[in-house]
Nucleic acid binder design. Structure first.
Lengths: 342, 342
DNA sequence: CTGTTAGCGCGTTCAA
DNA sequence: TTGAACGCGCTAACAG
């Protein structure tokens, strides 16, 4: 791009090598058989002139960019960061690059951003946890090829790569109930977030599966501050008998633990706390945070695999959901008989 | 891109509106004055056909992509994440998008990656903290327009946006000496890192400025684990009289504090700890981590400003270095008279 | 003010 | 095997 006017073109190479442009093109693309003599002269001409093919011209001819875009609401989110990293590295292996289209949380601009990004790229990765489902369906049909991250979209012709949050939550609840916890609290994530909805479903299923288990849902958020601020309502829940808390994600859990420590609440002795995502910091918290591990980079690699198939004209591959892995650490311990409460 | 063969082109619009392609083009670009009647008919044709201009064709004609690439060694790094975010949002405001070129720590491929990325874009942002200076100089000249992040490059014709690490460290040392600390330790970052070198220079200058102050340099790294592992040597330094530690960055500081807590060393009573970068978690650590705040997003915005000027054919603007701001928190406190040591 | 023409740089027929 | 010619979709001259 921005080939400073007068950049060396294939014509210059052809002239210097004394052959036609077509021959140069063939050498460049290894097409057909070309006389070895010509090959050499072309190659040396290329080297001498420092020629590099014009990406723009190639794109125009092929209708392909070798670029894909990833649409995200917030680059701050560790999950998306991991996916971006995994995606960009995997794609690079196939000569593709990744464009970031950060919508800065403006979900009303998400659709337009996606469409615009699609015009510049061969395919899209859509991370739109809060876009209304109907809108997402329409969008997906319009911008194909596309891979959707972390959302269910029943019946839609689109590959989905994500995390089985429901399953993760159920596994986490099981871990806690095995430790003797019966009354739990779930500090939820952003209201409209699809992955939060899945977690809540997991919470409900877990509660429904065992009549002894009760899970209270508390408002929360997705960041450190949200967890910090949720301490108040968490402690209220504790008054009502809760002995363990599951946070929407690790950031919330870490923020919560910070506040609890300030308030002199001992984790896990007085209250067990668990997070979700297993961010690096989880292992370094005090106490070390029990969490559900999600293979962030691997998700990105899987996304690329699906995308690549689509770009090559292949079929919509099956949805793949990673089952989070329980990482038991210090923040969750067996429930302790508790004195004087109702 | 990937205009499915047979996408609607400007010719279709022209035909439907009963005008020439040139007229359509004019309407599209608001060039010259066009008969309002034609404008309307073209617009309705565009709407009816759902026409969207081909980015590839435009790029070929203009020699511009409206895309810039950011080359980074590691997307995991909070600083680069912040810059990417700030850059991508600022660039979006001018209709530009950002391509990420993650070199996956392979510094030997950095140059090739940068050149390749440059072919797809109108300009480059180079984050190459470990690239040898001579190589960087050559590269910068070759891929212009380009902005360099977080490195000094005396005499080179390139805008630089960065952080004044030396100044930051000196301010931090001053903070500690005011608290009565005289013997400090600096847990350094990656060996070849330019920003680590600047920090070390800051350390030396601070020590040179005050004969009473001694600063010992310890090996370290850039991640949580590195800080955790550095605890051993930090404690050795403490045996030698050090009462305060400055870590390469917050991650290292946080990892270090985790280990210290495990070992029963009280921060800040027995040892003061300070970090650098002021990542969100710093405020939520226990104790809350004193750190030097760096405006990550703002850096990205500044980078875009410089890049935009360059793309528009403007001059190489002055280097801008942000002076980190001291955020005093709980992890640093006044030195306490210490009993029985040498 | 509008239409015609000529490329932008490359890949790809189709003859030779 | 090679080269000439055309077209990808669009914009910028130049006439009219």
């Amino acid at each position: 791009m921005r080939e400073r006017r007068g950049a060396v073109t294939i014509a210059d190479v052809a002239a210097r090598a004394g052959v036609s442009q077509a021959s140069v093109s063939r050498v460049l693309n290894g097409k057909r058989s070309v006389d070895p003599v010509i090959v050499r002269s072309v190659q040396s001409a290329i080297a001498a002139l420092g020629y590099a093919p014009s990406v723009a011209a190639r794109s125009l001819v092929h209708g392909r960019n070798h670029t894909v875009a990833m649409v995200v609401p917030d680059l701050e989110n560790p999950l998306f960061q991991g996916i971006l990293k995994g995606l960009s590295r995997a794609a690079a292996g196939d000569g593709y690059r990744v464009l970031v289209a950060d919508t800065a949380e403006r979900i009303e601009e998400e659709e337009a951003t996606a469409i615009e990004a699609r015009h510049r790229c061969d395919a899209l990765v859509l991370c739109a946890p809060r876009m209304p489902e109907a809108q997402l369906r329409r969008l997906v049909a319009r911008v194909a090829p596309v891979v959707v991250v972390n959302r269910q979209l029943p019946g839609a012709e689109v590959p989905i790569v994500g995390v089985d949050y429901g399953r993760g939550i159920r596994d986490l609840v099981e871990h806690l109930t095995k430790l003797g916890h019966r009354r739990l609290a779930y500090v939820s994530g952003p209201e409209a977030s699809a992955s939060n909805a899945e977690r809540r479903r997991g919470v409900e299923e877990a509660a429904a599966a065992d009549p002894d288990v009760h899970i209270e849902v508390l408002p929360g958020g997705s960041r450190l501050d949200d967890g910090y601020d949720a301490a108040r309502s968490v402690l209220d829940a504790r008054e009502r008998g809760a002995t363990a808390v599951i946070a929407f994600n690790d950031l919330v859990a870490l923020g919560l633990m910070t506040r609890l420590r300030e308030l002199g609440v001992d984790v896990p002795a007085e209250l067990a706390v668990a997070g979700f995502d297993d961010v690096p910091m989880a292992r370094f918290a005090t106490p070390r945070l029990t969490s559900m591990s999600v293979p962030r980079d691997e998700l990105g690699a899987q996304v690329w695999g699906r995308l690549r198939t689509l770009i090559a004209g292949g079929p919509v591959e099956h949805t793949v959901l990673y089952r989070p892995r329980l990482e038991v650490r210090e923040s969750t311990a067996a429930v302790v008989a508790k004195g004087g409460d109702a």
